[in-house]
Design a protein around this nucleic acid. Structure first.
Length: 158
DNA sequence: GCCAACGTTGGC
DNA sequence: GCCAACGTTGGC
């Protein structure tokens, strides 16, 4: 089974990379995904051991801050039937969960933040979904090549 | 705060 | 099954 690579968007005001690092066990459940494409990726394609970029979106400096690892299989997102949750979905229930999530764990801090600006300016990364106009998908596949290029940018000394 | 692009909903 | 209306995303 080949390892796959992903990009996970999060709004730092909601849940930042620092929040992940201060979570117990440095891990969190990736809840609140309410988009079928993103759900299907978690349900069908993500495997334990896959790596993902933690991407900050909707903020002054969008970009990749570090790397996380998928550490669970997909399981029902119980926030969907929690009326008090921001992610409440009246069509979901324990019998018919509708939404799933996985657990992800902190893996690596980048020495250098890799801003969207740089990703856009890097020819090899031009096909990434995150640089495409109107691309709103919050969980995106990343190729091994793209993963390696961004890791190199993130790890190099200033 | 703006607004373009996108996904979802619901009436027909 | 179409498609207009609406809500959301997310860079700027």
């Amino acid at each position: 089974m080949t390892k796959r690579y992903w990009l996970l968007k999060s709004e730092p005001t909601t849940f930042s990379f620092d929040d992940l690092k201060t979570s117990s066990g440095k891990k969190t459940s990736w809840d609140g995904i309410r988009n079928y494409q993103a759900r299907n990726i978690m349900r069908d394609d993500m495997k334990i051991g896959d790596l993902g970029f933690f991407y900050h979106s909707s903020c002054p400096q969008p970009g990749v801050v570090g790397v996380v690892e998928v550490v669970s299989k997909p399981y029902p997102d119980h926030t969907a039937w929690d009326k008090k949750s921001n992610y409440y979905d009246p069509k979901a229930s324990p019998e018919n969960p509708r939404w799933v999530m996985v657990d992800v764990k902190w893996k690596e801090d980048f020495k250098n933040f890799v801003p969207l600006e740089i990703i856009k300016a890097t020819a090899k990364l031009g096909k990434m979904k995150v640089v495409q106009k109107g691309m709103r998908l919050s969980i995106q596949p990343v190729t091994k090549d793209e993963f390696d290029v961004i890791c190199k940018l993130g790890r190099q000394k200033k």
